[in-house]
Design a binder for these strands. Structure first.
Lengths: 106, 106
DNA sequence: ATAACATTTGGTTATTATGCCAAATGTACA
DNA sequence: TGTACATTTGGCATAATAACCAAATGTTAT
């Protein structure tokens, strides 16, 4: 693994890291249904505005979401819908793991 | 988001978290080309055996890889090839981000 | 049995992430 | 202009992660 490869894997890992948090993952999937502003997420959870805002900024920095200021609000949008296909794969991992656990108990 | 949803997003985030490290990501992609033992990864990097072993155990716990002991060695295998399709999406995010940066400079 | 090899586990330290509060910024409207 | 609203930023305490070294475990062959 040379230094160029290292940078590449670091960059890809950073995108994954942005998704690798339950709240951010939930937000990402929620945004697939249409744009939301910070307040929307605050109302659907028990997190502080600052917490929600920081999570969204992590997703934005990673390039997963986009934002647009309209009036007083900032609307966030899912920028890369292929993320959702990916989630199917993650769920496949979970199912597979479950099958394995069941097999172990038999 | 009720408590069942919360658990589900936590479980999915845990799978992503396992992948969200440059070394583990590299290992995962390497395993797509065929099984490797701990020593193989140690030789290709400058990490300690213990470091490599711990990374592999994170991937195993997440259900991404499988292991099999044969003789003195433990061989690791990619269990869920769909992870690789997912990587194409992550790379798309990177390309998209780059395009955006280029546009900003114009 | 013991020596050599392959891997894992335990322990330590440094770095990073999370979530809250408080304060700052930006925007619309009276 | 000032007040309310929406979001972001800074700071802090706590928790989680990563890498190394050393020691333990398990396996094969002498």
């Amino acid at each position: 693994m040379d230094s160029k490869d290292k940078d590449f894997y670091q960059a890809k890992a950073d995108v994954l890291k942005a998704l690798a948090h339950p709240t951010r993952l939930w937000m990402t999937e929620k945004l697939a249904d249409g744009e939301c502003c910070v307040r929307d997420f605050v109302e659907l959870t028990d997190f502080d505005f600052s917490t929600v805002s920081k999570h969204l900024s992590v997703l934005k920095r990673a390039g997963i979401v986009d934002d647009e200021k309209r009036g007083k609000q900032v609307f966030y949008r899912l920028k890369v819908p292929c993320i959702l296909n990916f989630m199917q794969c993650v769920e496949a991992v979970l199912r597979d793991r479950l099958d394995h656990q069941i097999t172990m108990l038999k």
